Simulated scan of single mutants.
Amino acid sequence: MDEKQAAFIKKRSVSLELAEKMLRKYIIPTVHEERRRGMKKATVGVVSLLCFSLAFFVFFFVLGTQAKMGMERPMVVKADGKALWDYLKKENYARNWNIWPGKNALYPGKEPHGALLTAYVNKVAYDAIKEKRGMFSDGSIIVKENYTADKKLAALTVMYKVKGYNLMVGDWFWAKYLPDGKIAAEGRVDACIQCHSMAKANDYIMIAPLK
């Protein structure tokens, strides 16, 4: 279990404890009081059911509020070339992910990438683009397919944001794959960093402005 997953479980436990405290402080005493007053068993049962339903509503409401306030997502996959490639295959990104908003398939590219490019993004990255946040969230993945002028796939270049991986360059993990999945480069790739540092104000992204 990584740190992000542990943090998620800890926050969920806090929410459960809050709901349990409310149950003990307000709901259970209410049921006992009604019983003491001599309510019929059926009526007490109805009140109990309503009270427990309220407790569960509070629990899930707190969880939802935490998520909206920016609860950290568990890491998608570890920062490793092979693990990332296996994840991309499992996701079937070319079928299940969105193409970068505003970009078509096989749009014109330039060196050091292909003459033609197609950029796919996972949901985390897609949401950041559509909402014009100006920066990607942890877990964002961008897959750029690099094609030759005659539309032959030559390579895939991937950017994956991992919290704490490389603070100096936006926590980006870079990887380059040949079409068969062989790793040509991965990690803190100097050539990638030098080029993308020119777009530091755009979260090191050169495809399009994020705002």
Rank of each mutant, 00 (worst) to 15 (best):
S48H: 04
R35Y: 12
A55Y: 03
L63W: 13
V44A: 08
L54G: 08
F52T: 10
K41R: 11
V44T: 11
R37P: 03
L49A: 03
L63Y: 04
C51F: 08
R37N: 10
A42T: 10
T43Y: 11
V46W: 12
L54H: 02
M39S: 09
Q66A: 02
A42D: 08
L50H: 08
S48G: 01
A67D: 10
A67Q: 06
T65Y: 03
V47L: 11
R37E: 09
A55K: 00
R35V: 13
R35W: 09
A55S: 13
F57E: 00
L50M: 08
G64A: 08
K41F: 05
L49Y: 05
Q66W: 01
A67F: 06
F60R: 04
L49F: 07
L63E: 12
V44L: 15
R35I: 11
K41H: 14
T65Q: 05
T43P: 01
K41W: 10
T65C: 04
Q66K: 03
L50R: 02
G45K: 15
F56P: 00
M39L: 15
V44S: 04
A67S: 11
A67E: 11
A42G: 14
G38S: 06
F59C: 13
A67N: 14
R36A: 13
V62H: 02
V44Y: 12
R35A: 14
L50D: 08
R37F: 14
V47Q: 00
L50E: 00
M39Y: 12
A67G: 02
T65H: 07
L63K: 10
G38F: 03
A55T: 10
Q66G: 01
R37Y: 07
V58Y: 06
K41N: 12
R35Q: 13
V46K: 13
F61G: 07
Q66V: 08
L50Y: 09
C51K: 02
F59I: 01
K41A: 13
F61P: 04
L63G: 01
R37K: 13
A42N: 07
V62P: 03
T65A: 13
F60V: 14
